[in-house]
Design a protein around this nucleic acid. Structure first.
Lengths: 362, 362
DNA sequence: CTCAGTGAATGGAACGTTTCAATTGGGTTG
DNA sequence: CAACCCAATTGAAACGTTCCATTCACTGAG
């Protein structure tokens, strides 16, 4: 059924080498011959065999992208950035979902290596990933996504410490003095850094982190976990007046559960998220969040990867770090007890569907 | 750098055939020998070459999944269903984003065919896709996703006509008599069917569709297009009291713009979406929507595909059709002029963060 | 002691390309 | 007219596997 170059060649009355040339070096073959070959291809419905091609060439036209959660709009936006750049450069992207699970991640990395992808873009599940080093050593370029890599490796990231800091600084400026961090495990670098930033913000304000910051550690960075965190918060953290969630999925899940429990946001509790996914702005209480340049992140990562893959000679490892910015919306209001020092967002933007413009402080 | 079976063989002191057997038929090789070979593999960091493997075998362990928009949570949920099933069956999934663009779709299909993927799952951009038939004819199984296929082909879908019907029936029962459809182009089968269902609902209610239904056709099924539709609506459709959006992304974009323009939902305008994506429930005005079993859809599709791929002999083409269900939330309220005949959702659920339970009519 | 039988390992053909050195057949030059 | 050159084409080796028909070394039966 599937016909090969041999069939095309004999139908067109040429040698297989010529067929190959039509495909890869059209300028080398006489227009008339080329036309004959192309006609034969058309007639037979010939589709070149990628496996054979890349077996011979030693490299494929595919890239691997491993993300923590395809369901999280943050990652799909990143993926789109990667895809657009790759597409333009003639590469296809294999999108893999590690689901925050180490073994799934390992399995996918294996598949990608077997496929001899041109390179791998990954947001690793665990902090240290020795296998990534091994993969590099075996010759597959790896670019770390959303994480500042160690030396000898490209990476693209957003300054998460700064992100955590501006989020918590914002809450402090609203008068909050009891802030709970809803965060993933410290083994995830982003989580650890956002937390560090939060602590730094408190210290810079001349306060004691031990008194100001409470913590809830969640096992996954999704809405379900956010809802669970809300339960814990409602039960055990009555003193808290503000919550900083390590991403928007957590924040949205938390918001939903708070709503169901009758907790007013931001009246009873202020909430700040992270990522600024598209849906954050549309939430029941529009979510204050720390925006990351998602699309650019993906694009930049793909660019680094392909540069390394296509010009290994003059490639220099780079660590791009983007800067996050705070987007203030209705979910973060002043602390109920100290409503004095505030020039924050309009309170009732939450309840009435009036115009709600995003405020991006310079 | 990358070592092959030959290297492993010579290091272990065996023939390449034996190495191959360790990999594919471990039971055929003496435990001692096997151990030696495995040690050699470990030492060399040997990763089998997938290209060579599938060149020889003629088939790969990859599946292609082509969706209209990775950014739409509907598709990521479907993708997750596909992925879980594929993973369990030992397959990897290449996720491609056609972006509702015919040429991107074509390009990806080409890549997938060249890679000799084991099969393709696709939500096609255009209604008739003759190339899909050609792909089938060349031997790659194709399963249509979210679309009832023609005969001689598997497909998995949700009854979109029914979905459109229950959505509009719901609006009619709330007293609405001027309903606007915000819909994608009729070339997309889902859009055409949802529209058909909407018309049927009106006819079944003994009303004249020409009088009841207005239409806004959008060029894409995303939030941006939804917002644009809202503008059009505000400007030109003053008589409309309800809107049925062909998916939730449109509805969310529309809701946002309506909010900015000061239009009250559901007071001034009722809104119903489609898909029931996770974020629909969390929207500023929780969105009434037609729920599709997304995950199951993906799973079922993958199952059909792999059945066809792995047992072509006794495979029978099937057309699975799932049933959608209406999820009523705050965004659909009674028509302001005829508030009498209503036992609908609580109005103020939109403004106050009280408990909002989903109502799923049997 | 021989011979079939068995389990384990071997070696080479084949998969469909790409690449490259070799060949062909005009056309140009001296 | 020989010598040469260039563009176009050819044919075969190589890529790293899998598959299969062989070979090999034993074992137990006759």
């Amino acid at each position: 059924m599937a016909s090969g170059m041999k069939d095309v060649a004999s139908l067109a009355g040429v040698a297989v080498g010529t067929v190959s040339n039509v495909l890869n070096h059209p300028d080398l073959v006489r227009p008339l011959t080329r036309a004959r070959v192309e006609a034969a291809m058309e007639e037979l419905g010939f589709i070149p065999n990628g496996s054979a091609r890349q077996l011979r060439a030693g490299r494929s036209r595919c890239l691997g992208l491993v993300v923590l959660d395809v369901t999280n709009p943050f990652f799909t936006e990143v993926a789109r950035g990667v895809e657009d750049y790759a597409q333009a450069a003639g590469y296809a992207v294999i999108l893999c979902n590690s689901d925050e699970a180490g073994d799934k991640e390992r399995r996918y990395l294996r598949v990608l290596e077997e496929q001899r992808v041109r390179g791998i873009l990954i947001t690793p599940v665990h902090g240290r990933a020795p296998e990534l080093r091994r993969i590099r050593d075996r010759g597959t370029p790896v670019v770390l996504l959303d994480r500042p890599g160690s030396a000898g490796q490209c990476s693209v990231a957003v300054d998460d410490r700064l992100g955590g800091e501006i989020a918590v600084t914002h809450l402090l400026s609203l008068g909050h003095r009891r802030i709970t961090l809803v965060n993933g495990p410290g083994t995830i670098r982003q989580c650890a850094d956002r937390r560090r930033g939060a602590f730094r913000a408190v210290e810079r304000a001349g306060l004691d982190p031990a008194e100001v910051i409470g913590e809830v550690i969640v096992p996954a960075m999704n809405a379900r976990a956010g809802a669970a965190a809300a339960d814990e918060l409602i039960g055990h953290q009555p003193a808290t007046t503000a919550v900083f969630c390590a991403n928007d999925m957590l924040a949205l899940g938390l918001l939903r559960r708070l709503g169901q429990a009758g907790v007013m946001v931001p009246g009873d509790l202020a909430v700040v998220g992270y990522d600024d996914i598209e849906f954050a702005a549309d939430a029941a209480v529009p979510l204050t969040s720390v925006r990351q340049p998602k699309y650019q992140l993906g694009r930049a990562a793909a660019e680094l990867l392909l540069d390394e893959a296509d010009r290994p000679a003059d490639h220099e490892h780079r660590r791009s770090v983007f800067t996050p910015e705070l987007v203030v919306r209705a979910s973060s209001g002043p602390c109920p007890d100290r409503a004095q020092d505030v020039s924050g967002p309009v309170q009732d933007a939450a309840a009435s569907p009036g115009p709600s413009r995003d405020l991006v402080p310079g």
